[in-house]
Each structure stands twice: as structure tokens, then as C-alpha cells.
Design a protein around this nucleic acid. Structure first.
Lengths: 195, 195
DNA sequence: CTCGAAACGAAACGTTGTGTTGCGTAATCC
DNA sequence: GGATTACGCAACACAACGTTTCGTTTCGAG
């Protein structure tokens, strides 16, 4: 029933990619509120119609651009719960830093009330499910006390990343090695390891 | 030098309060992007000029409304580090829940790129300083290992609250007592207490 | 190779919302 | 009582979203 082969001229995939990249850059520099679709079209030398043909509204466009820069990532499976959780948390850092070109406008744009549901459905919920799978595996292997709230552990890790990246952006930057040590000790504390 | 006594007719303080309350309600219901200053004026039966006389732009108005619903809170001083940190973290929950009337649009509005700096300067940085003071006191009393990163502890607590309130809003609500137990065990884990 | 369908850039348009200005009136301080 | 400023109201300029129309171009199918 569903026509699988579109009929006329197909969408220009390269243009799609260029639009998403340009939106990501402007989103990061100017924020969602100051993202100008007309500027994107002008910068790329294309018409607004090419953009509105692909995405119906500005929030939808912004969400698509953000998601285009994020990778769901592979499920960490090292055999060690702490290692897996650190890797899982670090994927968030990678996603945000990989999309950051000017400031942290892209990260903040995720939290627009009209953008958030789209990001949540397409990304956050799947990430959360991955985290829960990691923790469930840890319980199965006897690495994790069975009375801990997995949502709390995952929200704490993700919340720390979000809060640090948005609120401590002006602090002297830390090396990846130092940040990884921070994540490791945080994870160990959350899953009930001593030290 | 600074004229301390304004000359003509003073601003209507009650109108100021009514505007801020109305903005908070609409912000929470519709989000920052869909906040309509003309609607606020119409709902209140006042002119737009009365609003623009007080705040120059929409982000400034939104920030003022958000801050008007937030209380910096008193610095907890129970003599116990864990109790103080739990109380400190709980103040965030109180602020957000006290401002929540329809959804979580108000919480998300804080993270608009143009609103965030205003909230950060007037609120977040002071809250962070309070948290640091609590932790410093804990170190002085020997309740806290001296090698822990205080920023990490505070960002983790605040980030957990933010992430939970934005991402788990649809989950079955937990009682205050249960949430307080969660915060307590989280704080204990972060400051290196066993259990 | 030709036909149909749909994408493309360009331009014009309607609509909405921000923020400003000017007006006559009302309130407050000196 | 006079200067000063707030107030509601109306009109305004401006910017940006999203739509429509047009002529042109590109692709798939037969």
C-alpha cells in the first residue's frame, strides 16, 4: 500500500545535510530563539521552500539538526559495570562537544519547550533505555545492589553532564583524562563502591 | 549622586506583581517561545507600555518573572553536612514546584540562551556559593574528605534535580518522604559515606 | 527518449508578535 | 499648584514565520 518509490525528482540529500549543519552552527552561536531560517537559506544560497519542504516548523528543524549531530552510540559491554556506565556517560559528553562550534547554544536549544519532546522521543528515551540495560546486566552479574533506583543513577549522571556543561562553561577547561577520572569516581559512588 | 527619590508618579507595585505572576503562569503553560506579551497585557487589562516601562525585552521579563518565584533561601546550618546538603538540594525542588502551575515550561524557560545568563547571575551563582560554603564548613568540621571536588558534588545534586524534573515528569509521582530519602542517599554517596 | 511528477530558486504575500511613539488623563512629590 | 512620571489606548514600523505562485530543472518510468 505505502508507495515505497517516490515519483518525481528526489530531495537533494547533500542540500539536506548542508542545511542541518548550518542550523547546528547557528543554533550553537545564536540560540534557538535567534535562529533565523531566512539567514540559513541566504547563507546556503537556497530558497526557504527547500527548507520548509523538509521540516514543517522551526522547532522541527532545530530538533532534526540537533539529532543529526548526536549519535545514539553503541551499547558499552566491557563486562564491568563501572566501565560500562562511564562509557555510557561519556557518550553524552562526546555528543555535546562534537556539536559545539561556538558556544553552548545547541545544548540549551534542546531544552526549548517545543524542541524537547522531539529530542526526548528520538534520543533521550533510547539513551535511558540503554542505561537501564547496562544496570540490569550489572544486577544480573551481582555487581550492583538490587535495591538501588536505576533512574536515579542515570539521571544523576546525565544531569551532572548537563549542569556542568551549561553552568561551568567559563571555568578553566579540564583534560579528558581528568574528566574521565571524575566520571569514574562519580559512578563508583553511585553504584555503592567504596573510595 | 544617585537620585534616590524618584520624581513623578511611582510605578504601581501591585501591577508589577500581577504582571510577574501572569508571566510565570503563561511561561509554565506555553513556554518561553510562545509567551505573548500582548496576551499578558490583555489578560491583565493594562497596556503594553506598562510592561515595557519595567522590563526592556521579553527575556528580561521572563527572567524577572522566574526569579520572582524563586527564593534564594536561608543557608542551612544544622551542624550536620549531610542534612545541610539535603536541605540545600531540596530548596531547588521547592522553588521549581512552587512555580509550577501547568507543566514544566517555567523550568525549561530558564534554559533559553537569552534568559539563562540573567538567572545565572542573579540566582544560580549565589546558590552555588551557598553550596560551596556548606561543603567548606563540612571540611572544617572534618566531616568531608578534603580531596573531593565541591563543584562536582553540587553540580551532581542540582543536575539530578533538573534532569528528574524535566525528564521524569510523566512518571508516577513520588511522595516527598520518598524523594527526601533519595536525596539523602544520593548525598551520602557523594560525600563518601557508606550505605 | 519522452512524459509526468516533484524538487529547485526567486519573489511576493498575509499574518503575527516585538518594541516604539504619541496622546490625553491620573497620580504623586515638592 | 506645578512639575514629573505612570497609566491605558491606539497607531506605527519592523522583523520573521510560513505560504503561495511561477518558471525551470532533475529524476524515474515506460
Amino acid at each position: 500500500m505505502t508507495q515505497d518509490t517516490p515519483k518525481g525528482r528526489p530531495l537533494d540529500a547533500e542540500l539536506t545535510a548542508r542545511v542541518l549543519a548550518a542550523v547546528r552552527a547557528d543554533l550553537d552561536e545564536f540560540g534557538f530563539m535567534n535562529l533565523r531560517i531566512e539567514k540559513i537559506a541566504a547563507d546556503l544560497g537556497c530558497g526557504k521552500t527547500a527548507i520548509y519542504r523538509r521540516w514543517p516548523t522551526k522547532p522541527a528543524l532545530a530538533a532534526a539538526a540537533i539529532l543529526d549531530g548526536f549519535a545514539l552510540g553503541e551499547m558499552p559491554d566491557t563486562g564491568d559495570l563501572v566501565d560500562d556506565l562511564v562509557a555510557h556517560a561519556w557518550q553524552n559528553v562526546d555528543n555535546v562537544r562534537g556539536s559545539r562550534t561556538h558556544g553552548n547554544g545547541l545544548l540549551l536549544a534542546m531544552f526549548d519547550m517545543d524542541v524537547m519532546p522531539l529530542i526526548s522521543e528520538a534520543f533521550m528515551q533510547k539513551r535511558h533505555a540503554m542505561g537501564r540495560a547496562i544496570l540490569a546486566r550489572g544486577v544480573d552479574r551481582g555487581e550492583l545492589r538490587s535495591d538501588l533506583d536505576h533512574d536515579v543513577i542515570l539521571d544523576t549522571l546525565a544531569g551532572f553532564t548537563l549542569f556542568t556543561l551549561t553552568q561551568r562553561a567559563d571555568d578553566p577547561p579540564r583534560s579528558d583524562a581528568e574528566m574521565l577520572r571524575t566520571y569514574r569516581s562519580l559512578v563508583r559512588a553511585l553504584v555503592g563502591r567504596s573510595t
